[in-house]
Amino acid sequence: MQQTRAVELGTGLFVFMGIVALFFLTTRVSSFDEYAGQEGYELQARFDQVGTLKVRAPVSIAGVQIGRVTAIEFDTERLEAVVTMRIASQYDRIPADSDASILTSGILGGQYVGLQPGGAEDYLAAGDEILYTQSAVVLEQLISKYLFNQAGAGE
């Protein structure tokens, strides 16, 4: 009996350590994805260029994450990228004339969608489209533009 208790105690401690490790991995090491479920509402935005934006990229406003990108599609008629994002339901008062831009976090970081609040009285609701958008900056285009400008200034 004594031995059985020791085995049970040891096993209990072992499993407990596993749970602590899992807790550590979920809270300290990774970002817990609170936007994964079905809660929240969807918005859409059209961009000429999404750059390297990926599904599950963050959507933030004033630097605070409020949602995630859920889908990126290409509209074959209007020849634009359609980005669908899911916003957490507590952020339901985003002015309707806000604009969305695709930004890069840091030099090596991934791209995300940043919202700039507008001044309208009414708010964006589920299924609405953000009309004012600014495309991703593509590094090659930026460089070539800069080089052409330099060339133009030199003449």
């Binding site: 979920t26 300290r28 090491v29 990774s30 970002s31 817990f32 994964a36």
Partner: peptide, 15 residues
């Protein structure tokens, strides 16, 4: 150290 880790490690895809 911690913030870079948290920003890039995803619970579902990685852990």
């Amino acid at each position: 150290f911690w913030s870079q880790m948290q920003a890039q490690v995803d619970l579902q895809d990685d852990v």
